[in-house]
């Protein structure tokens, strides 16, 4: 299987150097090659399982359960100004 590693890396928002891409390409091909064996399994009429148990997601009451903790929640941000997250300019 030929995998366009740079394209997948861009989908994942991870920069790869040419060296990294050259190393990851064959590794991904080997992993995907192993995964290919799933095609041997007859899954006609089999429902997919996304979650191990058939439990319905319970609803909880829509009430305020926590206080305003903005400072604590923002404390780990790499860049803040006046309580706002700062990122590079998006629109010129």
């Amino acid at each position: 299987m030929d995998i366009d590693v740079k394209k997948v890396a861009m989908l994942s928002r991870i920069r790869l150097t040419d060296d990294e891409a050259a190393e990851l390409g064959p590794q991904l091909a080997s992993i995907i090659g192993y995964i290919e064996q799933l095609s041997e399994v007859d899954t006609d009429g089999v429902e997919p399982t996304a979650h191990p148990h058939d439990a319905a997601m319970p609803l909880r009451a829509n009430v305020v359960s926590n206080s305003n903790r903005r400072d604590a929640l923002q404390a780990s941000s790499p860049k803040l100004e006046s309580g706002l997250y700062v990122v590079p300019k998006v629109i010129e």
């Binding site: 995998i3 590693v5 997948v8 890396a9 989908l11 994942s12 991870i14 990851l24 991904l28 992993i31 995907i32 995964i35 799933l38 095609s39 399994v41 899954t43 089999v46 429902e47 997919p48 399982t49 996304a50």
Partner: peptide, 25 residues
């Protein structure tokens, strides 16, 4: 990267959906 590939357009059914069905079995 493996996950992004198996979820990507054109491969989703062959890998992700297939794996979920095998999970059922």
């Amino acid at each position: 990267l493996t996950g992004a590939f198996t979820l990507s357009s054109g491969y989703y059914d062959a890998y992700y959906l297939k794996a979920q069905k095998v999970r059922t079995l």
